[in-house]
Design a protein around this nucleic acid. Structure first.
Length: 587
RNA sequence: GCCCUCGUAGCUCAAUGGACAGAGCACCGGACUUCUAAUCCGAUGGUUGUGGGUUCGACUCCCACCGAGGGCGCCA
């Protein structure tokens, strides 16, 4: 938000460097790290070290000297209230009243666009979630869904045109097993409610039956053959039951606040994938080892002339000529660029275990001469495990179903809402409980580095205190409550003519950082940056709330603070929006 | 055997290569005639796995080791 001011100072520093015969280097700004102080800072250690060249010297002392000199020559800049040199750092403190006013004005003018970047007119795609039909949807699946959703929101806020893509696994061995069990033991059944759970149970039952009697594998093979022959009964059953899953997923996505612009289905890429393998063979990139009882493979390291193994060998077609996941991924990647030739980036939010697989796919496409291959990028994330490092797997039955988690979280929130908001209708209460419960589920999936394993346990999943979504939502509600008391009429623009207190300065400081934080989150593809920002903002607001009376304050503080409350409410709302967390009107 | 990721307070996690490594939970002690206490304030808690190296400066980068997890031609 302070590009202009920064530029001015940078020019002065550069002029000083030239005058002193120092190298002109890029100035890196940081926020002043001291609480309650508002401004920007840069250090001169690098410059001091450079000034000595090959010789040794006291860098700290030299840096202090440079900072002191600059502080002296910059002393008259009107943009800053105070300029000081401390231990080799140059600290520039904003003139609070002017910027305080400027920040609030931007927020209140831009409203829900505050913090967002200029439209870049660049298109990117984020593929995420990719659930398997005919299986349960469990908590382990949430990470990709939330990560992808929020990355899409972040990129959109940063200024990109974002395509949200889903790639459901609607065919494959798991579906065949399901169809077999259904047609043999459950033909004609269809539950009225809770369909995703039921789909999962039919699958789990199929797995159990096959474990108990391995001879049944023959029947699975037969079912696969029927599918390959496009047996009308099997195809019809597949179409119908596949839709049940998709309907169930849609209901869940709606509840979770996730939507997609584009669906690619696994079943659409079997044939095109095989065609691409044929093409790879013709180009001499793939090797057909089927005559020697092998498969069709791409020996990537060999083709690249690498001495050490890196990409290894990727199987692109089974020895019996049937398609693999890899086969289909080749065609999927291509389809995305056929649909959107101007795609700058094609992101895949898929768990870390598939890192090598995606490196292989993208490198193979590059070898095949597709120039867009380098625009594909896998965004890996670690798994959600159960305590004791137990992986969630539908087959093992070690899962926490999403429906159960949502119900528990919502119930717990509802208990509090009913106690605290007796005057609200049951419908309103449930709406709030949903926002709080689902927000509480979302937050911890986003508030940690994606390369760290998340351990799910009920106790912390249902803990609404501290660093959690309800804390942030509550800050929003408090701000909203104050504004409601004055009919939401925000006082007109005015400058603070009283001495601002520390909580007020900290709060506006954090609000002013939001545009930068959003850009940083988009650049690094890290939702964590936004969760941190949102939490800090909420904390600063709660601090302000307890220390600074608003409605009972005398003018001009009352009006200034009302504007600050309105701006805080907006900033918190915008942070929550990027995180896909609903900001309730009451709690 | 090769490759990838992680290791920070009792627990869960933060910290653009820069100022005293910060939060939450738990535990202990306080605060509701005042805008919603799902809140706030205070106290306790650290040789950042170990050993080297690079740098003016390392939780951060490099190397080795230890510990945990994951991946390596026909699963997805």
């Amino acid at each position: 938000m302070f590009e202009l001011e920064q530029k001015q100072v940078e020019e002065k520093i550069h002029a000083y460097c030239r005058q002193q015969g120092l190298p002109v280097i890029e100035i890196k700004w940081t926020w002043i790290p001291f609480n309650g102080q508002w401004g920007i800072s840069t250090s001169f250690f690098q410059l001091a070290a450079a000034s000595f060249g090959e010789k040794k010297g006291n860098v700290a002392a030299r840096a202090s000297e440079i900072a002191e000199n600059l502080a002296g020559s910059l002393a008259k800049l009107p943009a800053f209230e105070k300029i000081e040199a401390v231990k080799g750092y140059l600290n520039l403190y904003f003139s609070t009243s002017a910027y305080f006013q400027q920040v609030l004005n931007s927020v209140l003018e831009e409203q829900d666009k505050f913090g967002h970047g200029e439209r870049l007119h660049q298109r990117v795609m984020v593929e995420f979630s990719h659930p398997n039909t005919h299986k349960a949807f469990h908590v382990g699946h949430l990470r990709s869904a939330f990560l992808g959703d929020v990355l899409a929101r972040i990129l959109d806020a940063a200024g990109y045109e974002v395509i949200r893509a889903n790639y459901p696994g609607d065919i494959g061995l798991h579906v065949i097993k399901w169809l077999w069990n259904y047609l043999k033991f459950h033909k004609g059944e269809k539950p009225d409610a809770d369909i995703t759970r039921w789909m999962g149970s039919i699958y789990a039952e199929a797995v159990r039956r096959l474990e108990q009697d391995p001879a049944l594998e023959d029947e699975i093979r037969e079912m696969y053959n029927r599918w390959d022959r496009r047996d009308p009964e099997v195809v019809a059953c597949w179409k119908e039951t596949r839709q049940w899953s998709l309907d169930g997923f849609n209901a869940m996505y709606n509840l979770l606040g996730i939507h997609f612009d584009r669906y690619y289905f696994n079943s659409m890429f079997e044939v095109p994938g095989k065609e691409m393998v044929e093409e790879l063979l013709q180009k001499g990139i793939a090797d057909d080892e089927r005559p020697e009882n092998g498969a069709v493979v791409v020996k990537i390291d060999e083709k690249l002339g690498l001495k050490e193994e890196k990409y290894r060998v990727m199987v692109v077609l089974r020895s019996d000529g049937t398609a693999l996941y890899a086969t289909e991924d080749l065609a999927l990647a291509r389809q995305k660029f056929l649909d959107y030739p101007d795609l700058q980036k094609s992101f895949y939010v898929v768990d870390v275990r598939q890192s090598l697989h995606f490196q292989q796919v993208f490198k193979t496409l590059e070898l095949a001469g597709y120039e867009w291959a380098t625009r594909c990028q896998h965004l890996p994330y670690e798994l959600v495990n159960l305590p004791g490092n137990v992986v969630m797997a539908s087959r093992e039955g070690t899962v926490v179903l999403l429906e159960d988690l949502i119900r528990e979280a919502t119930d717990r929130a509802l208990t509090v809402v009913q106690e605290k908001n007796r005057e609200l209708s049951a419908e309103k209460q449930l709406e709030i409980a949903r926002a709080v419960g689902i927000g509480a589920i979302r937050f911890p999936m986003l508030a940690r580095e994606s390369n760290k394993v998340v351990t799910f346990d009920w106790e912390s999943a249902l803990d609404f205190n501290g660093q959690a979504a309800p804390y942030i939502q509550y800050a929003y509600v408090r701000a909203n409550s104050i504004m409601r008391k004055i009919g939401d009429r925000i006082p007109p623009d005015l400058a603070p003519t009283y001495e601002l207190t520390q909580p007020e300065i900290t709060l506006v400081d954090l609000i002013s950082r939001m545009p930068d934080e959003i850009q940083k989150a988009a650049r690094d593809l890290r939702p964590l940056i936004i969760t941190n920002q949102a939490y800090e903002l909420a904390r600063a607001f709660n601090d302000f709330y307890t220390q600074c009376p608003v409605l009972s304050a005398g003018e001009p503080a009352r009006s200034v603070r009302l504007r600050l409350v309105a701006a805080s409410r907006q900033a918190i709302a915008n942070s929550l929006a990027i995180l896909g967390i609903t900001a309730p009107q009451a709690m």
